[in-house]
């Protein structure tokens, strides 16, 4: 099979995540027990989402500086994949929360923040759909995308730290501590983040190519 090297890297990292995530040693923590392994699947969804949405916002800025339809396509497709990761992050988080915090939704500031953030991004997709003119759609949604990303950062990373939160590393605590301090977790967690993010990049790559093909097809037809 002929694949670019980073696609092979994606496959290798994801296989390592699943095998290593189930078989390596994890710290024995009260309440969490074996569910600490969700760290390799739930948290990378959010890391992946932020990084892919960062790609989206970079291409939105690039579009505003140089209005190529390719930039708009990448921004749009990256936003869609980012939203997919965010929805998966919310769902996996709710499942995990049900069995460790007791409820699917406990109005945790980080849960609420991520829900609001996703709603802002849903509005991006609706906004895009409401324009007839291609250039107008691309320009206005690029501007909106910048604001959406700027709103997401405080919602996920600043506001939850100002109040008490069930999430680790929040409620006055500095970044990663309790769980990530453990090097056994780190050995799988960082490759997992990279693997899942690359999977998202792969999806963006495919959808972008498909969209470019579609455009070129209609131009020729």
């Amino acid at each position: 099979m002929k694949l670019t090297w980073w696609k092979w890297l994606t496959i290798a990292l994801l296989l390592y995540t699943v095998v290593g995530g189930m078989l390596t040693e994890v710290p024995r923590l009260a309440i969490l027990n074996e569910t600490i392994r969700n760290l390799y699947f739930h948290v990378p969804m959010w890391f992946g989402m932020i990084l892919i949405l960062l790609v989206s916002v970079i291409y939105s800025i690039k579009y505003l500086r140089n209005p190529l339809s390719r930039h708009d396509i990448i921004a749009h497709e990256a936003a869609k994949v980012g939203i997919l990761f965010g929805v998966l992050g919310i769902i996996t988080g709710m499942e995990w929360a049900r069995f460790t915090w007791g409820e699917f939704w406990s109005n945790d500031p980080k849960q609420n923040g991520s829900a609001i953030g996703l709603l802002i991004y849903f509005a991006y997709l609706i906004l895009r759909g409401s324009f007839q003119d291609h250039q107008q759609r691309a320009r206005i949604s690029a501007v909106y995308n910048i604001f959406a990303f700027a709103a997401l950062i405080p919602l996920l990373f600043i506001l939850p730290r100002l109040t008490d939160s069930l999430h680790p590393g929040n409620g006055g605590n500095p970044g990663f501590n309790a769980y990530d301090l453990d090097s056994r977790l780190r050995a799988v967690f960082y490759p997992a983040v990279l693997g899942w993010t690359l999977l998202g990049v792969w999806m963006v790559h495919l959808r972008t190519r498909l969209e470019v093909l579609k455009q070129r097809f209609y131009e020729n037809a």
Partner: peptide
């Protein structure tokens, strides 16, 4: 080009933390 850029960033970050 963007992908390569992102990957380099991620790899340095992963290496830095691991």
């Amino acid at each position: 080009k963007m992908h390569k850029w992102l990957l380099v960033l991620l790899l340095t970050w992963a290496a830095g933390f691991s």
